[in-house]
């Protein structure tokens, strides 16, 4: 796979130099956008009707913004579940999430995500882990940046 400009991987984490680094390219499918939009109750025509999307100036169906959780997760998963961090998936709950969006994502786009571990902290009986994701499309345009906060109870 080609590494595109501006897509340099983050440096190794000082406390966890051997930790898995996330890198994944996700091909956005038209039916996946429809399935996702239906699952969250998004009814906007540009997310379901190709003609409506084209009339609005897009090449194909437009992904709802929170679809970022889908195309970035595959890059994050090996980082979050790296045994070196020792997170028990069954005790993991989502503590917080930040997304900032750039270019719209449409069916047919290839979205490449770089994911990294940021830091961890203990709060009372809960461990707090933070991760980052940066996703670009096939033209190297930034489509989404995310900060993921996970809690292990």
């Amino acid at each position: 796979m080609i590494d595109r400009q501006g897509m340099t991987s983050p440096p190794p984490h000082p406390d966890h130099p051997t930790l898995a680094r996330g890198h994944d390219t996700y091909l956005v499918g038209r039916e996946k956008i429809r399935e996702y939009a239906t699952a969250i109750g998004e009814t906007a025509p540009i997310c379901h009707d190709v003609e409506a999307a084209r009339a609005a100036g897009f090449a194909d169906l437009v992904a709802p913004p929170m679809f970022a959780a889908v195309y970035s997760w595959r890059a994050l998963e090996p980082v979050v579940l790296d045994p070196e961090l020792g997170i028990n998936f069954a005790r993991l709950v989502h503590g917080g999430q930040e997304f900032t969006w750039g270019e719209p994502v449409v069916a047919g786009d290839e979205i490449t995500t770089e994911a990294a571990f940021l830091d961890q902290a203990k709060r009372a009986d809960i461990m707090v882990y933070r991760f980052s994701s940066r996703s670009h499309n096939q033209r190297g345009e930034l489509v989404c940046e995310g900060t993921w906060t996970n809690l292990v109870r």
Partner: peptide, 14 residues
């Protein structure tokens, strides 16, 4: 928004 592309950023705590 009714426009799915109107959001620039969203940050939440669960």
């Amino acid at each position: 928004s009714d426009d799915p592309l109107a959001l620039k950023s969203l940050s939440v705590q669960f």
